[in-house]
Design a protein around this nucleic acid. Sequence first.
DNA 1: TTGATAAGCTACAGTGACTTTAGATAAAGG
DNA 2: CCTTTATCTAAAGTCACTGTAGCTTATCAA
Lengths: 142, 142
Amino acid sequence: MLAIGTLSRKTGTKVQTIRYYEQIGLMNEAGRTSGGQRRYYVKDLDRLAFIRHSRQLGFSLDSIRELLDLSDNPSQSCAEADSIARRQLRQVEQRIKRLQALKKELKRMVAECDGESVAECKVLEVLRDHSECLTNHDEIGA
Amino acid sequence: MLAIGTLSRKTGTKVQTIRYYEQIGLMNEAGRTSGGQRRYYVKDLDRLAFIRHSRQLGFSLDSIRELLDLSDNPSQSCAEADSIARRQLRQVEQRIKRLQALKKELKRMVAECDGESVAECKVLEVLRDHSECLTNHDEIGA
DNA sequence: TTGATAAGCTACAGTGACTTTAGATAAAGG
DNA sequence: CCTTTATCTAAAGTCACTGTAGCTTATCAA
Ligand SMILES: [Zn+2]
Ligand SMILES: [Zn+2]
Ligand SMILES: [Zn+2]
Ligand SMILES: [Zn+2]
């Protein structure tokens, strides 16, 4: 039986995060010692590792929930798992595209400013006026 | 004098978001009609446009706050504005790098699965075992 | 057995940048 | 005057955690 700190160390997950996963039903409720501390089986460690690895690959907790459900029923077809992964791939590709457009704009504004006063700062000028941009960027955030 | 809905339409910002910006001190408190509705000057519209354009380019609200402060003092050197933009550029480049590594892994796992049962699903296999990966991905999320 | 230290517990607030909801009030046009 | 549209406040919800406070349990040496 493993203590929560062991799971934490073995998977690089904060202890609070493990408790959080339990709270939202992603991890099963762990057994407890007489004093109330959580104790885990190796299969719980495996599940946590799966969750963390999926997070590292950018999957949302909702997607991970689906993937875990599928993984628990080995007889089904894996079409659904594959489609979740393909969706994730498309999202990543979209993000890369968007970020590359941002990179281009940022690079240009930084390059074109020669560091004079704020009044002539190219960076601030572009931020004030989108018509100075080469690309459209209608979505917000990262 | 412009109503909040006009600012909303002209900048593509939700009305609530404009009120949120006021609440956190990013937009000045607007004047009010006798009935308590907000009324804006064109300079407020410009400020909001600046904020939204900066958000589209991925700047955080904290960075935008600094940029607005600088923009309000035209006599200073723009070194700080430029450095904020360069920092943003570096961040974007980092993100692109990370996402490209994710893309590679996702592409590979999707490509290598031939859609048999869950038991042999390459996607799930990789998620279970990071040693199947070609790259390290220690940070989490996007 | 004692006592120190490390590890764990709950409960709740905070993060960023909003979005959503509910219920009430104001403005504008016919 | 009436209806419709716009606006108001206040509070909770989102995502995926992280941090804090104040306490209890487990472990090991002396
Ligand atoms: Zn400059
Ligand atoms: Zn632009
Ligand atoms: Zn598969
Ligand atoms: Zn991996």
